[in-house]
Write a protein that binds this DNA or RNA. Structure first.
Lengths: 341, 341
DNA sequence: GACTAGGTGGAAAATGTTTACCTCTAGATT
DNA sequence: AATCTAGAGGTAAACATTTTCCACCTAGTC
C-alpha cells in the first residue's frame, strides 16, 4: 500500500528498527545514520501510520473532549468556542490531537466516552461540564483513566483534578462592586440551580450581602434555564415587586442579553434605573447595549490549563490530583451606575 | 494487558476469527455460536481495541474537522457551535467519531491536516471554511482524499463536493423583502470581500436592485471584518451620506448586533428610521433589540448533510462529486417596516 | 592478548484486529 | 457410490509500528 517504515529501511540500507528510532530521535543512532534515513524518508514521502504506532506503543497522543449533550441549550453559549480555543492551543503545543464526543442524551454521551476510552482512542479526557451525579465521571474514576474537569465537581472534590474559577469570590466581587456604587437592593439571576457555577455564584452573592449587612431576599433570586420566554416572565415579576432591585448580578453574558431586552420592553433603563454586572466577558458583553460590565473569567486560560495539565497527568500516571483556580477580573463598561434615588 | 479477542475466543472455545465475525455480526456465524461468544465477551468485559481494528481494516470510522485558524475572529461566531451540532449528529448516526484540528496560522492548520490524513487517523475531512487559494484543499485534492466543504469553493467548483446555501438567492430574497416594503435606498454590510459568502450575497443584493430598477450605489456597500471599532466608523459614514439608506442587508446576525449598537448611538431607530435584514438566524437574532428579521440558512442542516455525505463518499470511493444546496427562509421579526417618508 | 565497556545497529517478538483461504461435515446430485 | 455444494468455523497472514534482547565493533584496561 502506502510507503512504510520497511521501504524506508530498504532504501536507506538499515533495519526497520533503526528507522523507528530515527523517528523517535533516539540517541542510540548516530547523526550520520539519522541523516541517511531522513533523506530516504524524504525521498519516499514517508509518513508514519499513527494507528500502527498507537497499537504498538499503547498510547495515542489524542485527548478526548466531552461536550454536554447537544440538545442542551448551553451548547449555544459562546463559552464553548472560547474554551475550545484554549484547549486546542494547549494540546497543539504538545502535539496532541483532539477528539470530540457528543450525544443527544446523557446516555449517548456516556456510550461515546466508553467507546473512546475502552477503544483506546484517547489517552485522557477533558470534561466540559459536570452534572449532578455524573455517570461519565463515575466511569472514568472507576477506570482510573486520566481526566480533568472544567468547572467544579459535585462530589469527591479532592479526588478530581479540575480547573475552575473561584466563582464564590467572583460573585462576591461582582456584588461588592455594585454595593460600592451604593446599591442595597441587589437581585441575582442565574442558570439552573443544579449547576455548580450557579451554586457558587449564588453563595458569593449572598456572602457579599451579608458582609455588607444587607438583607437576603428570596424574591430577588431567579433561576432560569435560559432567558427567553420563561426567563422574560421571571424578570417581569422581579421588577414588579413592591421594592424592585436597583441592581442585578446576572450569571452569564448571554443571559444578560436576554435580561437587557426584557428590561427595554419594560421601559427600564440600564444603567440609569438598574445596574447590571454579568459574567464571562465574551465578545457579546462588548456588543450589548449598553456594553456590559462583566467579570472576565479567562475562558481561554481555563481550557489551556485543562489540556496542559491533562497531558501532564497522561505522561506521568501518578501525578497527584490538583485543583487549578484561574483568576478573574471585573471589566468595567457601561452597565453600572449609582442607584437612582 | 487488557482483555483481547483471544481471551474471549479461549473462553468461548472458538477461534479468534469467529469472535471477530461475531463483532461484525457476520452471517457466517450461527446464532448459537454468536450467543456463546457474546456471553463470553460480557463475562470478560471485552471491548475491541480500535487502533488494532483500524490498522487491520485500513479504516477508522473517524471524520476530521478542519476549523479556520483559531486566531480568526470568525471562530467566535455562533455559526460554529451550530454547524458542529449538525455534523456531529450526522456522524453519530453512522457511528463515526469526530477529530478536530485547529491551528493558529494557516500553516499550522495545514500541518495538522497532513498529520490526520497521512497518519491515517481519519477516513474523510470536513472543511468548515475556505480561503482563496486554499492549501488544504489543494492538498486533499492531490491526495484524492475524501472531503466535503461547507460553503462554496473558489475554484474547481464542479470537482469539489460541497454543501452550501444558495446565497445569491438568499440575498436576493432578503433584498426583495425590503423592496417589498417600499425601500429604494438599501445598503449592504458584509464581511471580508474575500469570502465566497460575501461575494454571493453582494451579488444577490445587486441582482435584486437591478431587477427592481433601482440604482446600485457604491457608497452603500461596506465590507468589514467585524463590527467593532472599525465597523462602527463605517456605519457612521454610511448614515452620514447625503441620502443615507433607509434599509440595510447585513451579512450576519453577529454583525447586525454591532450595527444595531452603532445605530443606537447615532439615535437612529430600528425599524422606524431604518430597516434591517440579516443572515443566519442564530439564537442571537431572536435576542437582539429589536429582534432581527433574519434569513435562516439552516446551519444545522448544513453540518448534518456535510457529514452524511462525507460518509457516503468514504464508504463508496467513487461517489461522484456533488453540490448540496440547503434551503433558506426569511424569519420575520421586528427589524423591518416601511420606509419613513 | 583476553576482557570489558560503550556506541551502533539488527532480528524478532509483540501490539490486537481483520480477512483470504482452507477444512470439515452433512446432505444433495448425478 | 462418487462427487458437489453449502454452511460453519478454523489457520495464519497481514496491517505498520515499537521495543526487548542480542550482536558486533572499536578502544581502552589489566
Amino acid at each position: 500500500m502506502a510507503v512504510t517504515i520497511k521501504d524506508v529501511a530498504a532504501l536507506a540500507n538499515v533495519a526497520p528498527s533503526t528507522v523507528s528510532r530515527v523517528i523517535a530521535d533516539s540517541p542510540r543512532i548516530s547523526e550520520e545514520t539519522k541523516q541517511k534515513v531522513k533523506k530516504a524518508m524524504e525521498q519516499l514521502g514517508y509518513h508514519p501510520n499513527l494507528n500502527a504506532r498507537n497499537l504498538a506503543s499503547q498510547s495515542t497522543q489524542v485527548l478526548g473532549l466531552v461536550m454536554p449533550s447537544s440538545k442542551d441549550v448551553g451548547f449555544q453559549n459562546p463559552f464553548f468556542p472560547a474554551v475550545l480555543q484554549g484547549i486546542s492551543e494547549g494540546a497543539r503545543e504538545k502535539n496532541y490531537a483532539l477528539q470530540m464526543s457528543t450525544g443527544k442524551s446523557e446516555r449517548e454521551v456516556l456510550d461515546a466516552v466508553i467507546q473512546m476510552v475502552q477503544g483506546k482512542r484517547v489517552d485522557g479526557v477533558i470534561l466540559l461540564y459536570s452534572n449532578v451525579d455524573d455517570q461519565v465521571i463515575s466511569y472514568l474514576k472507576e477506570q482510573k483513566f486520566p481526566f480533568v474537569l472544567i468547572g467544579k465537581p459535585y462530589i469527591d472534590i479532592e479526588e478530581i483534578t479540575h480547573v475552575d474559577n473561584d466563582n464564590v469570590r467572583a460573585a462576591k466581587d461582582a456584588t461588592d462592586y455594585l454595593i460600592g456604587y451604593g446599591h442595597e437592593k441587589i437581585g441575582f439571576i442565574g442558570g439552573s440551580a443544579e449547576l455548580m457555577v450557579t451554586v457558587d455564584r449564588v453563595s458569593g452573592y449572598k456572602q457579599a450581602l451579608i458582609n455588607a449587612g444587607l438583607e437576603i431576599t428570596n424574591e430577588y433570586m431567579i433561576h432560569e434555564e435560559f432567558l427567553r420566554e420563561g426567563g422574560q416572565e421571571a424578570v417581569r415579576e422581579l421588577m414588579a415587586l413592591e421594592h424592585p432591585p436597583t441592581a442585578l448580578v446576572v450569571a452569564d453574558d448571554f443571559m444578560a442579553l436576554g435580561v437587557l431586552n426584557t428590561l427595554d420592553e419594560l421601559g427600564i433603563r440600564v444603567p440609569d434605573d438598574l445596574s447590571i454586572v454579568s459574567f464571562n466577558n465574551v465578545l457579546l458583553a462588548e456588543m450589548a447595549r449598553p456594553p456590559l460590565t462583566s467579570v472576565d473569567i479567562n475562558i481561554f486560560e481555563l481550557g489551556y490549563q485543562a489540556s496542559k495539565n491533562l497531558i501532564v497527568m497522561v505522561e506521568n500516571r501518578n501525578e497527584p490530583t490538583k485543583r487549578l483556580i484561574i483568576s478573574h477580573q471585573i471589566i468595567e463598561r457601561l452597565s453600572c451606575s449609582k442607584p437612582n434615588p
